[in-house]
Amino acid sequence: MKKNFRLLIVLMIFCSLKAISQDVNLDSMLDVQIKTKNQNKTQYTEATFKTTRLINGHTVETTQGGVLDLKISHRFGMLNEGFYNMFGLDVASIRIGMDYGLTNRLTVGGGRSSFEKQYDAFLKYRLLRQSEGKKNMPVSVTLLASMMIETDTVAIKNQKNIAVEPAFTDKLSYAYQVLIARKFNSDFSLQLVPSMVHENMVDSSFNSNNIFAVGAGARFKLTQRSSLNVEYYYTLPGSKLPGTYNSFSIGYEIETGGHVFQLHLSNSTGMTEKAFIAENTGRWSKGDIHFGFNISRVFTIRKPKDLKM
């Protein structure tokens, strides 16, 4: 009798345990439900980089549809210019430009640089978006095609060693990039950028008009609103123009509301692909280091449909 009574108690405890566990189960049941739902949903990665430029070069990000991004970029002179030039602060290289998101994937943009009096225009298309869930995509891929016109004829003549006036087509250069990026976690993103710069006219001692390079860039998030960025463009040895060096830049980025401020040190003066990938003459080891900043301000011109409630 005693034994059976014990059995009865065990059974009762078992039953009541089952009832208590029901409370906890509601949460785990919901989790299972969410998990199955997520398998049928694609979660796209947002904000691999904070803005569409890392330092000099583009990032995989495109401007959102209907958004105008006004960009003012500034490079002071070089730190090795000495006290007379206030370590470069007396000298300025400026690019003022705008990017506009035609759609979430397609951006058109352009700008004017004081360096070599360049005008540039580009088209940028987000081909793949990093995602998880139903569609699993490990990387984001963006294609960039840009065109630059150098209008400073005196500079061209000196650069290319020519005496005659350059024709309009001689002033043109093109750049093509495939930007491949992955946001590994909310604090770290990395991108690789196979690039090609085509110059319609190069120094006659150099027999190729095409310069090939691979860029690498990374973002390390320091706080919720700031990050450390590095960018390096490695020009492939066979296509390097004489007297040029690889571009390396390191920067700090902070954002407040609709602004992104980027402060950096770089050995590049120009801010177009031709200038910093193909024709960068500055060297870190000689102290050809420019302090500079980029300011980006976004304006919502047209509110995209998916934001409307």
């Binding site: 947002e46 904000a47 959102q64 549809g65 958004v67 979430n104 909310s186 919720q224 609709g258 976004v298 919502t300 509110k303 995209p304 934001l307 409307k308 409630m309």
Partner: peptide, 13 residues
């Protein structure tokens, strides 16, 4: 919703 795509990004980020 939100007032701009950037605002939505800030909300999440």
């Amino acid at each position: 919703g939100f007032n701009s795509p950037l605002q939505k990004e800030h909300f999440n980020e």
